[in-house]
Simulated assay, not measured.
Amino acid sequence: MAWPRDAQDVNESTARTPARPTGLSHNDVHGGNIMFGSFMDHPEHGRTPILKLLDFGLATRISSYHDDGTGEQRNILDIGIMMATIIGLQTDRKYTGEEIEVDLSALNRSEIVLSPASNLLEDRDMGTPDPFPQVDLHLRLITAACMASDPGERPSLAELENWVVNGISYGADKYGNITLERDNTIRKIVQQFIFNA
C-alpha cells in the first residue's frame, strides 16, 4: 500500500517499503479483497502463501495527518482488524473488541497503548482469561499494536515488517516443538482451510 506503483522488482517477496510513505489509504480492506497466491521456494512463503490486496477503487491519497491518521496508519489499522478477524475465525463479520491497555514491551516498545484488543488478549485488570492461548502471543501483540486507538502509536510499515520477519524466523522449537507450529503442519492447514475451502 505504501509500495511505489512503478517498482521494477518483480520478486513479490522482496520488501519494497519506500523511505517515505506515499499516503495511499486503501479504505476497503476485507476478506473479499484479499487473494492468496501460491507457496514459493522462499523461507517465508514456503510456509504460507503470499497475500495480495485487491480492489483499490476506494483508495485515496492522504497528503497530511488527519484525526484518524495518515494513509499508512489507516492501512495498518485495517491490517490489524483483518488479522484479528482471522485469529478469531470470525471471517463472516469484522472484528470488534473493547479497548484495553496493551503492554508492548515484548515487541521492544516501552509504551502501553490503548487498543480494542479485549477479544485477542487477556485483560488482567478485568480478570478475563486469555481467549486464544493457542495463538502466538507476539502475533496477537503485533495485531493489537496495529489497532492502537491513537494512530501515532501504530507501527510504521518498516517496524511491522521487522516484527513479522523476526517472528517467522523462529522454528517450532521456540514453541516447545508444538505440532501446530511445524512447517509441514502449517502447510497442511493452509491447504485445507484456504486452497481447499
Rank of each mutant, 00 (worst) to 15 (best):
M1Q: 07
W3I: 00
W3C: 03
W3E: 11
Q8T: 04
Q8L: 03
D9Y: 04
E12P: 08
S13C: 15
S13Y: 09
T14I: 04
T14K: 13
T14Q: 13
R16T: 08
R16W: 04
T17N: 13
P18E: 02
A19K: 11
R20M: 06
P21C: 07
T22M: 02
G23A: 04
G23I: 01
L24G: 00
V29P: 01
G32A: 03
N33G: 08
I34W: 04
M35C: 04
F36I: 00
G37T: 09
S38Y: 05
F39I: 05
M40S: 10
H42I: 04
P49V: 02
I50H: 10
I50K: 13
L51S: 13
K52C: 03
L54M: 13
D55E: 05
D55C: 03
F56W: 14
F56P: 00
L58D: 11
T60G: 00
R61F: 11
R61Y: 10
S63E: 15
Y65V: 12
T70F: 05
G71K: 02
E72G: 01
Q73P: 05
N75M: 01
I76R: 12
L77V: 01
L77C: 05
G80F: 03
G80W: 02
M82F: 15
M82Y: 15
M83W: 02
A84Y: 07
I87A: 09
L89T: 02
D92Y: 08
D92K: 09
R93L: 02
E98G: 14
E99V: 11
E99F: 03
L107N: 12
N108P: 03
S110P: 02
S110N: 13
E111P: 03
L114D: 11
S115V: 11
S118Q: 10
L121G: 11
L121R: 05
E122L: 14
E122P: 02
T128M: 06
P129S: 12
D130G: 09
F132M: 08
V135Q: 10
V135C: 10
D136F: 07
D136T: 03
L137H: 15
L139V: 14
L139E: 09
I142Q: 10
T143H: 10
A144F: 11
C146R: 13
S149D: 09
D150I: 05
D150F: 08
E153N: 13
P155I: 01
P155Y: 09
S156C: 08
S156T: 15
L157R: 01
L157M: 15
A158T: 14
A158P: 00
E159R: 14
E159V: 07
L160R: 06
E161P: 00
V165M: 12
G167A: 14
I168A: 06
I168N: 06
G171F: 01
K174F: 15
N177M: 02
T179G: 04
N184T: 09
N184W: 14
T185K: 02
T185D: 08
K188R: 14
K188N: 12
V190E: 06
Q191N: 10
Q192A: 13
I194Y: 12
F195H: 14
F195E: 06
N196K: 10
A197G: 14
